[in-house]
Design a protein around this nucleic acid. Sequence first.
DNA 1: CTGGGGACGGGGCCC
DNA 2: CGGGCCCCGTCCCCA
Length: 289
Amino acid sequence: MIKMPRSFLVKKHLTNKKPNYGILDSKSDALHTSLVYLEVPFYIPSTPQPLEGWLPGPSLIPTPASMHSPKVDRLPSRDTSLSLHSSTQEITYPLSVSHNNPLRDSQSLGTMEPQTFLLSQDFRHPEERGSLPNPLLGLVHSSVSQERFECFDCHKAYFTFSGLAKHRQLHCEWQCHKYFCCRYCDKEYVSLGALKMHIRTHTLPCVCKVCGKAFSRPWLLQGHIRTHTGEKPFSCPHCSRAFADRSNLRAHLQTHSDIKKYRCKSCSKTFSRISLLSKHEEAGCSPLS
DNA sequence: CTGGGGACGGGGCCC
DNA sequence: CGGGCCCCGTCCCCA
């Protein structure tokens, strides 16, 4: 029988990249500087940037047919150049640092296809890097008529660069591309909050004053204390039984139901627990029995 | 072996 | 943002 792990919601190993545990103890800039960013596709906007305009103008960066998924490996800044690498060549482009780029309005602009790059570094201007997370490590997409900044992961679109930046920082980036590893075990989580909560299962800060048993969360301790006091606040409306745990009452209520929650697809027999259904199926369901 | 109770872990939601 | 609570679920144990 395949046993589900107790921590069934744990993110499994989808990446080898490990975050810096220091972020658990501090909410400093380490949150944004110590993590390893994954490479994700990036579309060079074909219209001017709403921020500082320091990104390379699209009309300056044609799309070589032989160039696939080049890496931007040099941090661009004003009045400098941008090197793009592919497996076959390296191309250096001057940067468009001004909204007054004369090529911006060229006829070729309307026929430009979105260009895909892989960003492996923080691509922002240093002034922006100081205050914002790296939003470009998500999808940025635009059309000629209406520029939008679209999250590569969830495809949510924003009209402003900073809008996407905030979205990436608060919601999507970590959830989609970063996994937080427990320093005490090998479990990984998709959010920092989930990891913090998991770590409590190691540190067990909530201690029972009666027996000394420790728990990860206060309400778990409260439930445990009921085992000492005998308090059972959750009563069954169908019988005289009462329970200290609401989940256990819910499971008990299944015993009063003729139609249980979990149904065998073969014989339609129902079970109060999925584990009982699994046992039934593994034993070899016989619809005639 | 089956069914059920006790205890507890984890994410989501709300305040 | 963090705590409390809810819900879902598993594991262990016992009748």
